[in-house]
Simulated assay, not measured.
Amino acid sequence: MDALFGSDQLCWLLTARKRPFGNGAEVPKKTLIEPAAWQLAIQEEIELLSVCADDILSSFAYYPSLLAMKDFHRTSFTDIEIEVPESPGIYEIYNLDNVPLKVGISVNLRRRLRQHRQSKQKYLSLRTGGDWSNPTDVRSTRSILTKHLYFSTVDGFNLELEADRQRYLVEHCYILFKVTESREVAREIEKRLEAEGRFRFTGRVQL
């Protein structure tokens, strides 16, 4: 694999879960996606690990959009301040099982992703006479991701609690982001991604 890619250009799909390569090399935390090289990477992976091609190719079900997109970068919620610029762009949030959770845009990626990570309870409000168990009664004034997580169930976490939402994002999720020329450019990409129907948290919260 090292012969095919530099240390910062390893095939993202095959390294997303940070498992070691055949030579035991550590998977980089932030990797530039190289769609044109994926076929070679898959073949190399098959030869190294004797994995069935069908099993590997089935992984692409989560990533149809990324096959045609370049310059997305991966980072963690702990490294937002270090790696994400204060620029317009688009982001995608995944859990460590590579399930797409949310796609979004912002004129300031760093600020927006920090808001998601904070997942502040104080920005969730209940309408008069409402019930906290009813999503239609709960309003999020800053991060819609906070509301989606609040009504989600994940083993080992009580996502009704701010601290557990923060811990879940830091320990069990990662971010792909791309800087764009403007919010309008990011929005065009976002619309295409939303149309694919891959992301779990879109629109109204469903129980």
Rank of each mutant, 00 (worst) to 15 (best):
S133M: 04
L10W: 15
L126G: 02
D131Q: 01
T128K: 07
H172N: 14
Y150I: 01
Y174I: 01
A36Q: 12
S50P: 00
S50K: 14
E83N: 15
K191P: 01
T141V: 05
R114K: 12
L176H: 13
V103I: 15
K29R: 08
V138C: 01
R187W: 10
P28C: 08
Y150F: 15
I80Q: 04
R112W: 04
E196Y: 10
K122D: 15
A163G: 06
S152T: 03
T136F: 09
K122N: 14
L169A: 00
E86T: 12
L14V: 04
I93W: 12
E26P: 06
T141A: 03
L169R: 00
N108D: 15
P28L: 09
E44D: 15
T202V: 10
Q166P: 06
L13A: 10
D55K: 04
N23C: 15
D155P: 02
E34A: 09
E190D: 08
V51M: 09
F5Q: 01
R139C: 06
M1I: 08
A186L: 02
L96M: 10
L109R: 02
Q115V: 11
V99Q: 06
E81Y: 12
P20Q: 11
L169I: 03
S152N: 03
G24C: 02
Y123G: 00
N23H: 10
W38S: 07
R167F: 08
F72W: 09
I46P: 08
W132S: 01
A16M: 09
P85L: 02
Y123F: 13
F177K: 00
S143W: 09
W12G: 08
Y123D: 04
R139L: 11
N108M: 03
G104M: 02
D164M: 05
L176F: 15
A36F: 13
Q115F: 10
I175W: 09
E44T: 09
S106C: 07
T153F: 07
N95T: 04
D71Q: 12
D131V: 03
I80M: 03
Q9V: 05
K191G: 06
L49M: 11
E196R: 05
I105M: 04
F5W: 11
C173H: 01
R117S: 12
T146R: 00
L207D: 12
R114A: 12
Y62R: 03
P88V: 07
R19C: 05
R19F: 13
L161E: 13
I105S: 00
D79I: 02
C52Q: 13
F5S: 09
P85M: 02
I42T: 13
L49I: 09
E160K: 04
R192T: 14
L176V: 05
K120G: 06
A61F: 14
R192I: 14
V154W: 07
Y63A: 09
L124E: 09
P85H: 08
F157I: 08
R127A: 02
V107P: 04
D2Y: 13
R165H: 04
L193Y: 13
R167Q: 08
G24L: 07
L176I: 02
T31H: 03
